[in-house]
Write a protein that binds this DNA or RNA. Structure first.
Length: 285
DNA sequence: CCGTTAACCTGAGAGC
DNA sequence: TGCTCTCAGGTTAACG
């Protein structure tokens, strides 16, 4: 499901329900996620307060009051659902058919509400960090956030030197730049007019500048529009994103290229297990 | 070390 | 209608 914008929207939409709330109880309905939820998870959280909710790349960090944290990842289909009281479980958006109760894996109860973790494909996970979460395996290996100043031409060039991979694979690599996924990489390369199969080392300085420019621009715009909803992404209050209406190539196979004067159709090719969408004319290699 | 592939899991949609 | 097949917002162990 989620790339940086969807995770950012998730964080914003759950934050106000969690900050400084005391955890009364944690129910684990199914521990079998990407990593098994540890046995001491409930005990670890009980009676603690959530000090902050932040995003690092596509990870969500819940800082707990005693210098420890929970790292959460949504995988492809993970989502949080705020439940006002336990009696509202069957009400409103929870009733929408796409939210199926058997995919609720975890629920954290506060005094007057709870938050559910729901994940169809179970690629998401939770990890307990007892020390500095920034030094944890997942966070420590991340490159700069795509919307941070550290993601600049100098960094780009130094990372690429001596490597031999396509620009699409490079942008998908979280060690290079954190937060991008398949949708936004396709969109960025279309706007920058660069073929996804072009070798990173063959990019010109101008092309690198364009990639960084459009990466920033597109990610910020996607956040502004509440992320993208393809199949089942919703924020924690049940709203869909609308950036999918702005897609120029993603999910547009066979449709006309958006560039004025270009008569070509968008093509789709499977590469490295992921779909590439691009215009064969505007993004000629 | 580097780049690519397979695997994890469930459901939607296409084709027959 | 129903079956089979492919693909889907991600990460990472294992392989060459």
């Amino acid at each position: 499901m989620p790339e940086l914008p969807e995770v950012e929207i998730t964080v914003r939409s759950i934050k106000k329900y969690l900050l400084n709330q005391k955890i009364k109880r944690v129910a684990i309905y199914n521990p079998k996620l990407r990593y098994r939820i540890p046995k001491n998870f409930s005990k670890f959280l009980k009676n603690k307060k959530i000090k902050s909710v932040t995003r690092k790349s596509k990870f969500i960090i819940f800082e707990i009051d005693n210098d420890s944290a929970i790292i959460s990842h949504l995988g492809m289909t993970g989502r949080y659902i705020i439940v006002k009281t336990k009696f509202s479980l069957d009400a409103s958006f929870y009733n929408k058919k796409e939210i199926i109760k058997k995919h609720n894996h975890l629920e954290i109860f506060f005094k007057k509400h709870s938050i559910i973790y729901n994940d169809i494909r179970k690629f998401g996970f939770f990890k307990i960090c007892k020390n500095n979460y920034k030094k944890s395996f997942h966070i420590n290996n991340l490159g700069p956030d795509v919307i941070s100043k550290q993601f600049n031409t100098k960094y780009f060039i130094s990372f690429v030197s001596g490597r031999n991979l396509s620009i699409k694979n490079l942008l998908m690599n979280q060690k290079f730049v954190a937060g991008l996924g398949n949708i936004y990489v396709n969109e960025i390369l279309y706007s920058a007019k660069i073929n996804p199969n072009k070798k990173s080392k063959n990019l010109t300085y101008d092309e690198i500048k364009k990639i960084i420019f459009y990466a920033t621009k597109i990610i910020r715009a996607a956040i502004k529009y509440g992320g993208s909803t393809i199949l089942n992404y919703h924020n924690s209050e049940g709203k869909t994103g609308s950036y999918q209406d702005k897609f120029k190539v993603y999910n547009r196979e066979g449709k006309n290229c958006c560039t004025p004067g270009c008569k070509k159709k968008i093509i789709k090719k499977l590469k490295n297990g992921r779909s590439q969408f691009y215009c064969p004319e505007c993004q000629e290699i």
